[in-house]
């Protein structure tokens, strides 16, 4: 099924009118953005509908957009159908402060660890998650490091953790970091 008809079918099921949601069927990875409160309904339909049959949740990623209005974290779900060999990207936005999403663990069990990781690194809460703990970082690690405005602590339990040199300035200045034939 083509990306345009997947998006159309999903929008029709959710009762979304033309123009009331964002989507791009022509993108490199076609995507549709829906509201957080419609997430579970969308996911259940995508999995259960025999013509769509998205049986695997491939990946969940967070992207922080502090400069947007309103500041938001975008949570991106990459879905695959092994049966029909088609792909779609489901996006949703949560407010940066105190936002939460429903868990998709009930639809695809793979969501469990991915959501824990998104919580760990971005601080997005997932309502109804069965094991809502940090996964990669220690429990008392300060903040959620993949937020754009997260700052390095100097030390953590007396262990110096702040990197001595930031490479950002070099890269911003167009200077190569030693990879490539032109260095």
């Amino acid at each position: 099924m083509s990306a345009a008809s997947i998006i159309e079918r999903l929008a029709a099921h959710l009762g979304l009118e033309e123009g009331s949601f964002e989507s791009d069927a022509e993108a490199k990875d076609p995507w549709i953005r829906i509201r957080g409160d419609r997430l579970v309904a969308a996911a259940e339909f995508l999995k259960a509908d025999p013509e769509l049959d998205f049986d695997t949740l491939h990946c969940v990623s967070g992207v922080d957009w502090p400069g947007d209005d309103p500041p938001a974290i975008e949570v991106v779900y990459h879905l695959t159908s092994l049966t029909h060999k088609h792909w779609i990207v489901l996006k949703t936005r949560v407010p940066r402060e105190g936002g939460s999403l429903p868990t998709l663990e009930t639809v695809w069990k793979a969501a469990n660890w991915h959501e824990r990781e998104t919580y760990d690194l971005f601080g997005v809460r997932f309502e109804g998650h069965s094991d809502h703990r940090r996964i990669l970082l220690p429990a008392d690690w300060p903040g959620h490091p993949l937020l754009r405005d997260w700052e390095w602590p100097e030390t953590w339990h007396k262990i110096p953790v702040k990197p001595g040199r930031q490479m950002t300035e070099r890269a911003e200045g167009g200077q190569m970091t030693g990879v490539g034939p032109f260095d």
Partner: peptide, 23 residues
């Protein structure tokens, strides 16, 4: 329990140019 080798290359990647992420 995982995370003992966590280095967060994703954070590093936000500070290096595209080719520099490869290593």
């Amino acid at each position: 329990h995982i995370g003992y080798l966590h280095r967060n290359f994703e954070k590093h990647a936000e500070n290096i140019d595209y080719q520099g992420v490869i290593p």
